[in-house]
Design a protein around this nucleic acid. Structure first.
Lengths: 120, 120
DNA sequence: TTGAACCTTGACACCATGTCAGGGTCAAGC
DNA sequence: GCTTGACCCTGACATGGTGTCAAGGTTCAA
């Protein structure tokens, strides 16, 4: 229902993102609507790339009816900035790779500017 | 000299990226120019975001004087494509976060479109 | 001789997730 | 009531790349 795997549901319980699940007599975990809702929240946050610790904070803001939206916004912006840095780094790598690939004739001959660049 | 930490030099030896280092009588590892050169190769490849397994292949191409530059180029292009996908994914996240942050008034009030979006 | 600065191996940690093993439970069909 | 298959339980190991720590050995200079 939440789209979260069994494995991860239990993991989230272990690390305290989810409360300890209620248990049936057999020991099976028992979830209610609220649990599913919370899991979906976590899943959506993960899809936006938030790390577990960020999600912990988001959940506590969500739980807290007296929160200030400014705090949520700050988390989102800080995460967006982190993503921006990652994007820049990956793009720089990608650009250089494409440039090197462009220089390389890419045929049966062994000489290759890509290896030259890597070997210094 | 290579810019690679002790820790990682030994790790690369453990996983077979680097040959087992020569040893002094005391058991201390002993490196020569060639080792340093190889380590630098690995470090540069890591800086371009190549994973260890890719580097393993790059090293074997580097070692092999009969290589075809086409093979090196294919590795580089495939890695660039993978980077491109990652960039796209991160950018999509970032874009949505910025959009949500834009909608959020970000003051002392608790209502917040970011949390609304996460809670569904 | 002593101390500081190195080196050795081994282990544990991160983060998020998958997978497997070895066992228990439950419900449907016979 | 028994079998069978589909669940569920816990615990452990793996991934990748790196940090860090501990307990011990070595080397060199003062």
């Amino acid at each position: 229902m939440s789209g979260v795997s069994e494995r991860m549901i239990r993991h989230y319980e272990t690390i305290g993102l989810m409360p300890a699940a209620a248990r049936q007599g057999s020991g099976y975990r028992d979830y209610d609507e609220k649990d599913v809702h919370r899991l979906r929240f976590v899943a959506r946050a993960r899809n936006l790339g938030f790390a577990i610790d960020d999600i912990r904070q988001l959940l506590s803001l969500w739980d807290n009816g007296d929160r200030a939206s400014a705090d949520v916004r700050a988390l989102a912006l800080s995460h967006a900035a982190a993503l921006g840095e990652k994007v820049d780094a990956l793009q720089a790598m990608r650009k250089e790779l494409l440039h090197l690939a462009d220089l390389c004739h890419g045929d049966g001959r062994p000489d290759c500017p890509i290896l030259d660049r890597l070997s210094g």
